[in-house]
Design a protein around this nucleic acid. Structure first.
Lengths: 126, 126
DNA sequence: TCCTAAACTGATAATGGTTATCATTATTAA
DNA sequence: TTAATAATGATAACCATTATCAGTTTAGGA
């Protein structure tokens, strides 16, 4: 894995954004400061960084994959009104993978847990 | 919602298959006995049946959405070796949605929980 | 039974997110 | 400095899914 300016910019941009962006969203943010970057480069590097465990790829929130610079164990909540994505602390269900192993004998490599609903902010708005 | 032969066939085909098929997989099974059915009809009806709560749509297992005739509360495990999808009993984490509500105040409409790893069968093969 | 409105169908075009391809450029270690 | 190789940007291709639409089927009166 060689250094590249583009990869650094992508990683920095992700770190600066708490919004758990999709590849395309991040691309649109980056081209404001770095118009020459290509969309494929953004996809490529986000996947590469996720493979290396430097960032995290989140599935199942909506049609597109989202990315998260926070690699610590945690889950996600997406509000069906405002579409904002929130972090959900890991300890709401810290032993699920272990429970599955005990019950099924399957070895768990990855646990994908996400919630859909209405966030507190949107609840009070109505 | 009017009766249609196609919808009945689709539902029956899903009920007869424990494999949690994608729309396309189910389509390929159905055309063996009912070659005139259209792919769009399969997609349409699976989505409709899922909306009505008659079947369940599963996200986040892989790129495609899978469907399940079992509407009871449960989760899923996909084996990264054989790609088989297994049911995971609900009680490994029955209070997670409630926990999230207590911690965050977000109202939870849907909880998506899936596991990736190696199933027992594939473990013993090595 | 016949009629009509609404739902449904199959074929196919369009969409949207993502990956593959490829010629060119940048990085790195010797 | 050079040579190997990784990375880039543009764009074509891919794949799952949805939209469109003309023709067909269903269902509940008249």
């Amino acid at each position: 894995m060689k250094y590249s300016k583009q990869r650094e910019i992508i990683l920095r941009a992700l770190e600066m954004n708490v919004i758990h962006p999709t590849a395309d969203e991040l691309y649109k943010l980056i081209i404001k400061d770095f118009p020459s970057i290509g969309l494929a480069t953004v996809y490529r590097n986000l996947n590469l960084l996720a493979e290396k465990g430097i960032i995290k790829k989140i599935y199942g929130l909506d049609d597109a994959a989202h990315f998260d610079h926070n690699t610590h164990n945690h889950h996600h909540f997406i509000c069906t009104k405002c579409n904002k994505i929130y972090d959900v602390p890991y300890d709401i269900a810290s032993d699920i993978a272990d429970n599955v192993w005990k019950k099924t004998g399957f070895s768990i490599e990855k646990t994908e847990l996400s919630f859909h609903g209405i966030c507190k902010n949107c609840q009070t708005k109505n």
